[in-house]
Design a protein around this nucleic acid. Structure first.
Length: 213
DNA sequence: CACATGATCGCCT
DNA sequence: GGCGATCATGTGG
């Protein structure tokens, strides 16, 4: 049994389709994982629940590079029931449960069979000014009511989860090592975390907000 | 900011 | 049995 599905926070009620935003193509999610991680900064992650839409604007992501990445669940080709959705085609959802109380959501990248993904770490509410609501992967899932029962869902089959391209300019994008993977040897220092430098919703210590490109 | 701790449980060895 | 892609809270610098 997985966790029961809570309602999304009502303050996230929003339908990106009303803005005429476009969805990403399947091929986009098959691109290099670091490219996808960077490109989806500023995009809208949307979810339908009980016939209402909720959405948040992504401002922080991390790339997980599969079998060669000691920080990835699919390191060394590990293939268990939990990780299995990582092996799906790009554009699927991979959600896992950690620390006995939190869920983390990823978007799978690369063609089927290559288990890489982008962790969604932080986002902003449609109306803004709710800095902590979506700051951190656990809170992101909690606010949107995302649980492991949605792991394996396809974002590109007109379902309840979708990703829309952002319209406005993203601003500067910062880069740093990933958070919470210090056990991963040299992979722990790889610069695979991307974030919108001027967003108040970005998680993690200020010490990781220095560099930008 | 850095560091420490507790909560809480599915997953893997 | 141990630990984690976390968070909230508390301490100290």
């Amino acid at each position: 049994m997985t966790k029961k599905s809570p309602d999304p926070d009502h303050r996230l009620a929003f339908n990106p389709r009303s803005l005429g935003l476009e969805e990403f193509s399947r091929d986009f999610f098959r691109l290099d994982t670091t490219v996808v991680a960077r490109e989806i900064i500023g995009s809208w992650f949307a979810r339908r629940h009980q016939n209402k839409w909720y959405a948040a604007r992504i401002v922080e992501t991390e790339a997980y590079l599969g079998s060669d990445d000691a920080a990835a669940h699919s390191w060394r080709g590990r293939r268990t029931r939990r990780v299995e959705p990582m092996y799906l085609d790009g554009g699927h959802l991979y959600v896992f449960f950690v620390y006995g109380m939190h869920c983390c959501a990823n978007i799978v990248t690369q063609p089927a069979g290559i288990a890489q993904a982008v962790l969604l770490r932080a986002a902003e509410a449609p109306e803004g000014s709710l800095p902590k609501l979506l700051s951190g992967p656990g809170r992101f899932c909690a606010a949107l009511g995302i649980t492991t029962e949605s792991s394996g869902t396809d974002l590109l089959s007109n379902g309840d989860f979708r990703l829309f391209r952002g319209k406005a300019a993203h601003g500067k994008i910062g880069v740093s090592k990933r958070i919470g993977v210090d056990y991963a040897g040299e992979a722990a220092d790889w610069p695979l975390r991307f974030f919108e430098t001027n967003s108040p919703a970005v998680s993690g210590p200020a010490s990781l907000r220095g560099k930008s490109t």
